[in-house]
Amino acid sequence: MAWCGNLFTLLIKPVIYFFNQPSLLRHVRDILPRTFNNNLLKFEPEYADDSDRLGSILRESKKYATVFISIEAKVWNQDHNKITDIGLSTWYTGSFDPGRYSHYWQVKDNLSLRNECTANEPDTFMFGSTGLVEEGADIALILDAMFKSLISQPQRVAIVGHDVHSTIGLLKTYWEPPGSIMILDTQRIWQVQYGRVDKVTLEDALDMTLGAVYNKCWLHNAGNDARFILNLLEAQGGLILRAQNDVGLDFEHVLR
């Protein structure tokens, strides 16, 4: 084993020599904090595109009508392939009907499934009547029909969700969004606006965002949450436009 010791000695000698040189040590001491600080200064939120895209859509809403459609899906926490509830809300901007419409369906095949650790309030939908659908084909038919009707109109369409890609992933077994549709994530926009990379719940994002309208008692129902996601998006859009200091921009007029 003597050869191992000799080999180790040969390898470690250059390292010992390097750190025994005072000038080199001072150089390392000086450069490390500077490099670390430079890396901190270069930090940028990872998801700036969603925020920029929302600002662009709202600024152009006088020229182009846009409909935002939010999607929220609840699943059984013991099997994420079991969808229990679906909520949709639409918000029309730059049109003659700037209304907001919400829909909610329970999947009757899974009505008996109850989450033990994840909040879900299937009986508290406050923006219309509750529908019943069968898992599988019915989910695909409803979503396809909704988006087909929206795409057929002369307007831009954007899917919105809070952690929207996770929601789309839950629905992937039955449905995938059309490839031409824009996708916006209120979670990512929140991360940009607060300079954060961690995730935030819909409730906390609503609570922290100035101007977001919601009722805490109605959260955790897929239909209500879909509605509140649009309310959050509207408040986020207001903050984006105000931060950009658009000259003469009337935010209320833009949205209505």
Rank of each mutant, 00 (worst) to 15 (best):
Q153K: 13
N221C: 10
E121I: 02
V28N: 05
L233C: 07
D198V: 08
D144L: 03
S23C: 00
K74M: 09
T209Q: 05
H253R: 15
Q191K: 12
H80F: 10
D185A: 06
P177H: 08
S129Q: 12
T90F: 03
D225L: 07
P177E: 04
V67P: 00
L184T: 07
P33K: 05
P98R: 12
R53N: 15
D50V: 04
R26S: 11
P122G: 06
G179I: 04
I159N: 04
N77K: 04
L54K: 04
K216W: 00
G179W: 06
N231V: 04
A222L: 06
I16P: 05
Q106P: 00
D225Y: 05
T118N: 08
L232P: 00
Q21A: 11
P22L: 09
G237L: 05
W218G: 09
G5N: 14
A137M: 11
D246W: 12
G128F: 01
R242F: 07
T118A: 13
Q106G: 06
L239S: 04
G161L: 01
V107T: 11
V164Q: 02
D185S: 02
N224P: 01
L54E: 08
R29C: 09
L40M: 15
I189M: 07
V107S: 06
R34T: 11
F36K: 10
A235N: 04
L40Y: 10
I189T: 08
I86W: 04
K148W: 02
D109K: 07
R29I: 14
R59S: 09
T35V: 12
H80W: 05
P122I: 02
M146V: 15
A212S: 05
A243H: 10
T35G: 09
I57R: 00
M146P: 01
T130P: 05
S56F: 11
R227D: 01
H27G: 10
Y17E: 08
N221P: 02
P45H: 05
P33E: 03
V213R: 07
L171D: 03
D207S: 12
L184N: 03
Q78C: 13
Q155V: 09
I159Y: 03
E134D: 12
I57K: 04
N245F: 14
K172M: 06
I240Q: 10
L150F: 08
N81D: 11
Y101K: 10
M1R: 11
A158R: 02
W91C: 05
W105M: 02
R114M: 11
T84N: 01
S70R: 02
S129E: 15
W76I: 02
G211L: 04
F19V: 06
L249Y: 12
Y17A: 09
